[in-house]
């Protein structure tokens, strides 16, 4: 396990005090979070604690259905489920990915974990919007309208505050071949701006065969979700090195 050089404390239940307002000492221009940004303070986010019983029931039902349909066996390899703030990063192979990872987490952790999803897909239609907003508490990212002062990374960090965890897909889009593509740089900026958050690699195996790209009816094959040990950005680690290391940590879970 990599020692958390930039983190102030060792990983575990004892978390450092909220450091959201603290900026990591970067000294270069990668920080797109401008201090003048009116949204910097942790804004009140529609939180799962206030979900209606219907949404909760729907969430439980869908999680159960997803587990049943994907036959997902869940493995924690040199890693433990924990309610501390985390970013789960996974390979992206199917529309079911976020749902199945979310369903693979124990319910108490599911409550504080928000999948990141594409706005253009998930805000279309009443049911999808309801599912994304009220059931999964998904964080919708507009892929078509990315601005410098409103970068997805800043949006994600602002939305999770100091308590929530995220599920992200650093490849950016679903891989067609089933191979894990190169990571986009978002994961690096997340790690750089919040060096205290644990980054957990999640390898999704076989889910692309359950529901491949362009299909809407699932085939109930067996899939496997592997959670790996946390990693952090090393002191002075370059973007490319970090992204390569993170991708390798993900691929290592493939066995």
């Amino acid at each position: 396990m990599t020692p958390p050089i930039l983190a102030t404390t060792a990983p575990g239940k004892k978390r450092p005090p909220p450091r959201l307002t603290e900026r990591p000492v970067t000294g270069n221009d990668v920080s797109m979070l401008s201090p003048a940004d009116p949204f910097t303070s942790p804004v009140a986010v529609a939180s799962l604690q206030h979900r209606s019983p219907l949404c909760r029931a729907a969430g439980l039902l869908l999680a159960g259905l997803a587990r049943l349909l994907s036959g997902a066996s869940v493995r924690w390899i040199a890693s433990q489920p924990d309610t501390c703030q985390r970013i789960y990063f996974a390979n992206h192979t199917s529309h079911l990915d976020a749902l199945v990872i979310w369903a693979s987490l124990p319910p108490s952790i599911r409550e504080i974990t928000r999948p990141v999803a594409a706005k253009d897909y998930w805000s279309r239609g009443l049911i999808r919007r309801w599912l994304a907003r009220d059931v999964f508490d998904a964080l919708l990212i507009d892929r078509t309208d990315i601005k410098v002062h409103q970068s997805p990374v800043d949006l994600m960090l602002r939305e999770i505050g100091t308590a929530k965890s995220l599920i992200v897909f650093p490849e950016g889009s679903r891989s067609i071949s089933g191979e894990v593509q190169e990571f986009k740089s978002g994961l690096y900026y997340l790690a750089k701006k919040r060096p205290d958050i644990e980054l957990i690699p999640v390898f999704i195996d076989n889910l692309n065969r359950v529901l491949p790209r362009g299909e809407f009816l699932p085939v109930p094959l067996l899939s496997c979700i592997s959670f790996g040990p946390p990693l952090w950005l090393e002191q002075g680690e370059q973007k490319l090195d970090f992204l390569t290391r993170a991708r390798r940590a993900l691929l290592a879970l493939k066995e």
Binding site: G71, N206, R209, P212, E215, L217, V219, P220, L221, L222
Partner: peptide, 26 residues
Amino acid sequence: SFWALREFITLTPTRKGDHRALFWVF
């Protein structure tokens, strides 16, 4: 039977062109 078939097809490489046929099979 359903579960056994699931295991059988999971360990059998299939291609995307088999997806719809597999759906009806299951």
